[in-house]
Amino acid sequence: MASTPSVKKIMQPSDKATSGYSKAPMVRPSIPEGKGMRTADELAQATEKISVRDMSFYYSENRALTDISLSIPECCVTAFIGPSGCGKSTFLRCFNRMNDMIEGTRVEGEILLEGQDIYSSRTDIVTLRKRIGMVFQKSTPFPKSIFDNVSFGPKIAGIRKKKELYEIVERSLQRSALWDEVKDRLSESALNLSGGQQHRLCIARALANDPDILLMDEPASALDPASTARIEDLIFELKEQYTIVIVTHNMQQAARVSDQAAFFYQGLLVESGATEELFTNPKKQQTEDYITGRFG
């Protein structure tokens, strides 16, 4: 173990407090020191947006998640990391109850959104999903125009006025950094956009509902590095206004964009904490092994 260089070893304890995190080899150098990155103190002070208490999740008889407890702070990026099949995507899909679509799934324990139980029998799923937007791994533009794609949510919410819809579409596309590229061709089919553009369109579509929280399932995993960089920049911009939860295979990405990280392994939440802390000074051996690339 000691023979392989670990992040722990590279980081000198003295560096950690100031600039230690940015010196980690996986950090993208183009991000300026501390830009938008929340420190551990800021994280501790942030309001709790979602609180997960002793939650377990079952696919019929199989328990996919076991006794998860986690707090997700407001206006921060929380990253779920872990090897394939560790349950991180399943966990993410619990927040907007997407797992309800799969028959035989069951949740124990509770997930509270600002103190209200998401899995209460009185929860209105439609309202819940409007407050908690989701961007999927594979971009899924509807075979409609760009305008109709972005205005899909507001239209369903009952907004009919063309002017109002147009304003929402413009604002959402600007927030997802796509406006300048598509403003002259809003009536064109969304399927004509490039992969990266389609992904930002899906982000715009989620933002058009004006959610508080944005769930991102492996954002950019199917994109080229340039498009990935754009999406990551976008995440930095968006977290000023939205609480963001991302699932990623890519540890470098987690290290670059997240403020808080949670490491999952075999349905268990092994460790969670400030990204800086988790990546430089993991408390559990499993976490260290994973982030140093010894398995997974």
Binding site: N96, M101, V126, G133, F142, G153, I156, A157, N209
Partner: peptide, 27 residues
Amino acid sequence: VPLSLRGAAFALGANKFEVTVRVVVPA
């Protein structure tokens, strides 16, 4: 019609009828 398209529409707060009429059938 891909399941992912239905999922995306559900995630935007559409109910089953809206997903069917506005996404699946047009697709």
